[in-house]
Measured scan of single mutants.
Amino acid sequence: SRWTEEEMETAKKGLLEHGRNWSAIARMVGSKTVSQCKNFYFNYKKRQNLDEILQQHK
């Protein structure tokens, strides 16, 4: 299923807060499964600069 802007923003916040904790990110997004969140990261990594966001994760 397609990702809305809102879901993407929430997933990015999740990456920032939780790093690669996909289940925590899935809980934040609410409408996507753990594997969908993981796939989002790998599919949108380049397009959305997700690696940069991940590097900011403490």
Rank of each mutant, 00 (worst) to 15 (best):
N39K: 12
K45Q: 03
Q36E: 15
R47K: 14
L50H: 10
A26W: 02
W3K: 14
L15D: 04
K32Q: 00
N39M: 11
E52K: 10
Y41H: 01
K45R: 10
Q55I: 04
R47H: 13
V29S: 00
L16I: 13
G30L: 14
T10N: 12
K32T: 01
E17Q: 11
E7Q: 03
L16Y: 02
A26G: 02
T33Q: 00
V29N: 00
K32P: 00
A11Q: 00
Y41W: 13
K58I: 02
I53F: 07
T4D: 02
L54F: 05
C37F: 08
G19P: 03
S31Q: 07
A26N: 00
L50T: 11
W22T: 04
K13F: 03
K38D: 00
H57S: 07
H18F: 08
S31V: 05
L16V: 10
A11I: 15
E7M: 07
E7K: 10
L54K: 09
K45Y: 04
R27W: 04
R2W: 09
A24Y: 03
M28K: 14
K45T: 04
E7N: 05
W22D: 02
N49I: 03
R27K: 14
F40R: 03
E52L: 12
I53R: 09
R47P: 13
S23R: 09
H57F: 09
D51F: 00
Y44G: 03
E5N: 09
S35A: 13
F40T: 00
M8Y: 02
M28P: 00
V34L: 14
K46C: 04
E17R: 11
G14W: 05
N39T: 10
E7H: 08
N39R: 03
R2H: 14
V34K: 13
K38C: 06
Q36M: 15
H57G: 13
C37W: 06
G14I: 01
A24K: 14
D51C: 14
Y44Q: 08
E7L: 11
K58M: 15
E7Y: 02
K32W: 07
R47S: 15
V29E: 00
Y41R: 03
G14Q: 04
L50F: 10
L16C: 07
G30N: 03
L54S: 12
H57N: 04
G19E: 00
T4N: 04
N21D: 08
H57C: 12
I25K: 11
F40H: 03
K38R: 10
A24W: 03
Y44C: 02
G14L: 02
I25D: 02
G14V: 02
L16E: 07
G14A: 13
A24M: 11
S35C: 05
E7A: 12
V29L: 08
S31R: 06
Q36H: 10
Q55A: 08
Y41T: 01
G30S: 02
S31L: 05
E9L: 05
F42N: 13
C37A: 08
K45M: 06
V34F: 06
K58D: 15
Q36D: 09
L54A: 13
S31D: 00
L16A: 08
M8D: 05
T33N: 03
K38E: 04
R20E: 14
K45S: 06
E17N: 12
T4Q: 00
M8F: 03
I53L: 11
A24E: 13
W3T: 09
V29D: 00
M28W: 11
V34E: 14
S1T: 09
H57D: 05
Y44E: 15
T4C: 02
S31I: 00
G14P: 06
N21S: 06
K46A: 11
R2Q: 06
R27I: 03
R27L: 08
E7F: 04
H57E: 04
Y41Q: 01
E9D: 12
V29T: 02
F40L: 03
T4E: 09
M28H: 06
N49D: 07
W3H: 06
W3R: 13
H18T: 04
Y44R: 07
T33F: 15
E9G: 03
R27M: 12
W22V: 03
Q48S: 11
I25E: 01
R27Q: 14
K46R: 06
R2G: 13
F40K: 06
C37P: 00
S23C: 11
C37M: 12
S31E: 08
C37V: 15
Y41F: 14
Y41N: 00
K45W: 03
R2A: 11
E5D: 09
C37E: 01
K58T: 06
L54Q: 09
K13I: 14
E9V: 07
S1R: 15
G14C: 10
A26L: 12
G30R: 07
V34R: 10
S35T: 11
T10F: 07
K38N: 00
G19H: 01
H18N: 07
F42T: 08
Q48P: 13
D51L: 04
L54D: 14
Y41L: 11
K38A: 05
L54T: 10
Q55E: 14
M28C: 03
N39V: 05
S23H: 13
A26S: 11
Q36N: 05
C37N: 01
V34I: 12
H18C: 03
Y44M: 06
E9I: 12
S1I: 07
L16S: 08
N43E: 14
E6Q: 13
Y44T: 06
R20V: 07
Q36C: 08
A11R: 08
T10G: 08
R20D: 14
W22I: 06
T10Q: 12
K46S: 12
K13N: 08
F42Q: 13
N43V: 04
A26D: 01
R47L: 12
N43F: 09
C37I: 13
A24F: 02
A24T: 09
E9S: 05
H57I: 15
N43L: 04
K46E: 14
C37H: 00
M8G: 05
